[in-house]
Amino acid sequence: MIETRGLSKRFGAVTAVSELTFTVAPGTVTAFLGPNGAGKTTTMRMILGLLTPSAGSATINGRRYADLRRPSSEVGAVLDDSGFHPSHTAHAHLRVYACMGGHSRSRVAEVMEVTGVAAFAGRPTRTLSTGMRQRLHLATALLGDPRVLVLDEPGNGLDPEGIAWLRGFLRGLAGEGRTVLVSSHVLSEVEQLAGHVVMIREGRLVTAGAVTGLISAERPTLEHVYLGLTGGAA
């Protein structure tokens, strides 16, 4: 369960996120939608304790990220700007963070298997393709077998097979009762993936709720809903 209350962030004169209040419940994938620059990444970084909110709060299972006892066992995250040491192999990268989070060697092998990282485990990260890097980020997030996942555009760079795999994988995780928040711009994909959406625009909440409740006869697809609500042409 992720909750934000009046969450706001200003960068100098720019208000990136403003008075954002929403809840992400376990058991279904929640899609985080909004135009470029709407504040999705900023919101996720505040939830994860990487940015300090200018006002309001964000909690995970009732606690601020910084107050979690074993953060990597409770929350897994994929963020767009994170990277790898170029001369580390994919396996070495995972071992460093497994060590840091107190996760076992066998868990490293498991996440490499489920994410497909095993296929390129011995390669230096500087030689990895975008999709391979994305899989390695996901593997890192899964090391602690967390109950909550916060993923910023995790499908970026994945091939069609990878996207289909990710969809099934995330739905499976949510089906096990985990909390999954995923930002995306690919609405056709979101329609197949998510049960709930949180939609923001210019840092403010536009709508939040079950996908089935948002779709109607006049707005038969998520794209219609999105364009209607975020002010794009329908």
Binding site: L48, A66, S82, G83, H85
Partner: peptide, 18 residues
């Protein structure tokens, strides 16, 4: 400084918030 240059600092901060 390499942690910042290669952006591993994000993962490190997630695993060790303190």
């Amino acid at each position: 400084a390499a942690e910042y240059r290669h952006r591993t600092i994000t993962a490190t901060a997630l695993f060790v918030p303190r």
